[in-house]
């Protein structure tokens, strides 16, 4: 799984490279554009995701300690958090659509008043990065649901809980990516 996480780092890394390059080319544009992102929603999402990482780590801990029922419950909380994250994201996206803050060719400056000619780039990156991240949230959720099902079936004990741990690692990576996405997109301009 660690090897697979390496590939995920490289995959997202490409997007971060693009972000860094364009940021260095157009710093004022980033500054102007990022104000159109809702910091509060972003911060709440950050806290939700960190909390879900905590519950997932605890779920793994419970599996290690031969407590499948508790493990199951902590994983369930993790899933709830993930859903909350996605719902908030949905509202953010909806808001963007209304403001015409869309990628590239669909960017509508008339609706949002951003005058920089390259402003659409910021939102292209925003949607690509958060979109790919959201996709990974969904994948992570499916993994956790699968592991929850296996837990209920009694597949795991303190000698064998590898799938729980592996899904946990994947989930933590999803959190890790968000830990960088949040300041880069929402906070710094």
């Amino acid at each position: 799984m660690w090897l697979f996480l390496v590939t995920e780092v490289m995959l997202f890394g490409g997007l971060f490279v693009a972000y860094i390059i364009f940021r260095n080319l157009y710093p004022e544009m980033y500054h102007e554009a990022h104000h159109h992102l809702n910091k509060v929603m972003g911060a709440i999402n950050t806290i939700v995701l960190i909390f879900s990482s905590w519950t997932m780590a605890t779920a793994v801990g419970m599996a290690q300690r031969n407590e499948p029922k508790k493990s199951f419950r902590y994983m369930a909380v993790t899933i709830v958090c993930a859903c909350v994250f996605l719902v908030i994201k949905f509202f953010e996206y909806e808001h963007k659509f209304h403001e015409g803050l869309l990628p590239g060719g669909y960017f509508d400056a008339a609706k949002n008043g951003l005058t920089h000619p390259k402003a659409d780039l910021f939102f292209s990156l925003y949607f690509m990065m958060t979109g790919l991240h959201g996709l990974h949230v969904l994948v992570g959720m499916s993994l956790i649901v699968w592991v929850m099902w296996r837990t209920k079936r009694g597949d795991f004990n303190s000698h064998y809980y590898t799938p729980v741990e592996m899904s946990g690692l994947y989930w933590h990576l999803v959190d890790l990516i968000w830990i960088y996405l949040f300041p880069l997109l929402y906070l710094i301009g």
Binding site: W2, V6, G168, H172, L176, I179
Partner: peptide, 26 residues
């Protein structure tokens, strides 16, 4: 997150090197 939630602090050298290598190449 990496050291404690993901447990890399307690993992062997292999996994440590592997994971941090990716950031070098990035």
């Amino acid at each position: 997150v990496i050291l404690f939630f993901m447990g890399l602090k307690y993992e062997g050298q292999e996994n440590n090197v592997t994971f941090f290598c990716s950031f070098v190449f990035l």
